[in-house]
């Protein structure tokens, strides 16, 4: 990808192309487009070993997991149209999302209830408290997008099983191209309150050419808007 980007840039410059063309063909623009995850939406250690739960965290997760996976709105707040959080939402194989790259920001725009995840690329931001998508600080390492995530909302799970996280959880995500049609996210979860050691999961995404992210209004979809009070 780097070679292609440089070649396009050189061609544009030699041909007197407009700067906007050079910008559009940047080496990091491979990530632009619509993506959808493969798999079952569950995070698993990439090394094949068991998730290094702390005992109390494993106990709580096992107790809650059946209700969470059954969509009980008392434990899975996404059934109340609250954001599912990350990396759960992006690894959901039923939810496409688009990635948009600008210099100051990279944005993941999800179809699910038109949610967005903003990755600030230029300067670290003040951590203002837990938010559903966490505080996302990104940078590029060549063509790999590296995102540092912290301050995740306590009402979210890391995946569709309700995989838990603590207040001090910190995720490092590395997004890299696997070719024109695929992308990989390597997610390292560092959460000493919940896990006895950092562990890493991988999620593979397929590019969805021709697919657009459609308008979605969860409260309408779930018919929860019908409960509005006059």
């Amino acid at each position: 990808m780097m070679a292609k980007g440089k070649l396009l840039m050189a061609l544009a410059l030699l041909g007197g192309g407009a700067p906007v063309l050079v910008q559009a063909q940047g080496a990091q623009d491979w990530i632009e487009g619509v993506w959808q995850a493969r798999g079952d939406g569950m995070l698993k250690p990439a090394d094949g070993k068991p998730i290094p739960f702390r005992p109390e965290a494993a106990k709580a997760w096992n107790a809650q997991k059946p209700a969470f996976m059954a969509g009980d709105p008392k434990v899975d707040f996404s059934r109340r149209c609250k954001p599912p959080g990350e990396p759960r939402l992006m690894s959901d194989p039923k939810t496409p999302f688009a990635v948009i790259v600008t210099k100051p920001r990279v944005m993941f725009a999800y179809q699910w209830n038109r949610l967005v995840r903003m990755i600030e690329m230029e300067e670290p931001r003040e951590v203002i408290g837990p938010v559903y998508f966490g505080q996302n600080a990104g940078h590029w390492e060549d063509e790999t997008l590296v995102v540092d995530v912290q301050a995740l909302h306590p009402n979210t799970g890391l995946d569709r099983t309700g995989l838990p996280h603590g207040e001090k959880a910190r995720l490092t995500e590395r997004f890299r191209s696997l070719g024109p049609k695929q992308m990989e996210a390597v997610i390292t979860i560092n959460d000493p309150e919940t896990y006895s050691a950092p562990w890493t999961a991988k999620v593979v995404f397929d590019r969805q050419p021709g697919l657009t992210v459609k308008e979605d209004i969860c409260l309408d979809r779930e018919n929860l808007a019908g409960k509005l009070k006059q």
Binding site: P73, R79, R80, C81, K82, C218, L219, L224, A225, K227, L228, K229
Partner: peptide, 11 residues
């Protein structure tokens, strides 16, 4: 939706 629940909207 967080505000909404506080105001009796949604779930």
């Amino acid at each position: 939706e967080d505000f909404g629940e506080a105001f009796g909207i949604g779930y």
